[in-house]
Amino acid sequence: MTALVELRGLTKHFPLDTVMWGTPKRVVHAVDDVTLDIAAGETLGLVGETGSGKSTLGRTILHLNAPTAGVVRYRGEDVGGLDRAAMQRFRSRAQIVFQDPYSSFDPRMTIQDIIAEGMVHGAHRTRAARAARVRDLLRTVGLGHVYSDGYPHQFSGGQRQRIGIARALAVDPEFVVLDEPVSALDVSVQSQVLNLLASLREQLGLTYLFISHDLSVVRYLCTRVAVMYLGRIVELAETRALYAAPRHPYTSVLLAAVPIADPRRRHRPRQVLQGEVPSPIHPPPGCRFHTRCPKATTICREEVPALAGDATHMVACHHA
């Protein structure tokens, strides 16, 4: 397994105040000390609730946010140290698809211009070449019948999400961050887009980082899953292992919380997590989950557990 993307101690903090001098007082600890590898050809699921930092992590990997600390290596090269030309090359290899099919398009641009926005390289110099390529891409995502000079507001949510995928594919990427790509869609449309993503992965040999709060969707699409809580990875395992035998207490409650579409199983014993996610401005010391964890002991309050285990299943818990 060769790693396409390597994250080493990746950290992203956002200052909350704008100051003229000195350092900001309040800082959001969005992503803290994340180390993991994404292998070429795999689909890594990134799961977490609001405020877990999963979207921020996705954007920081692509250097859309400059990391506060740590490095991102793509094919062994430090992305932070790339010069202009190399950065351009990186941008055409690593792409992103966003959740919101409304705010992810400039309302004043046509579909043609939106999809062609990334075509900055030689082959697409002429207008005609770009238009032909856009046609191809629209066909690829199942929108062969639409007018490319339409505007985003004329399309449904599912169609827009396909347009977003076409825009990302326009630069022939190898790696795509999918940031909650189906969360805003209706159930019947969601499955269409998931199937599209699965077949594109096969056809084009793509590697995905699939960010989602929906554990069922993650299970369908992903080969490995990382679970985030308050900016840290708490568990990282192959999909089957994680769903069959979660080892972090947070993963267990997260899985138990998913409603099951089978009325015969409604009377199963339930483990309901109490309380709320603490503020990422003042994250708890030690294990960040200790404030809500049924297994927490003194060591959990004092020491940050390291992510440890074998290649197929790693967990950051003192009691796992």
């Binding site: 954007r59 859309l64 950065m87 941008r91 690593a94 966003f98 926005e117 900055v120 825009r167 326009a170």
Partner: peptide, 13 residues
């Protein structure tokens, strides 16, 4: 902070 600006940056613009 709109995603389309983020997308343009991701596309190398």
């Amino acid at each position: 902070n709109r995603e389309f600006v983020m997308a343009a940056r991701a596309l190398g613009r």
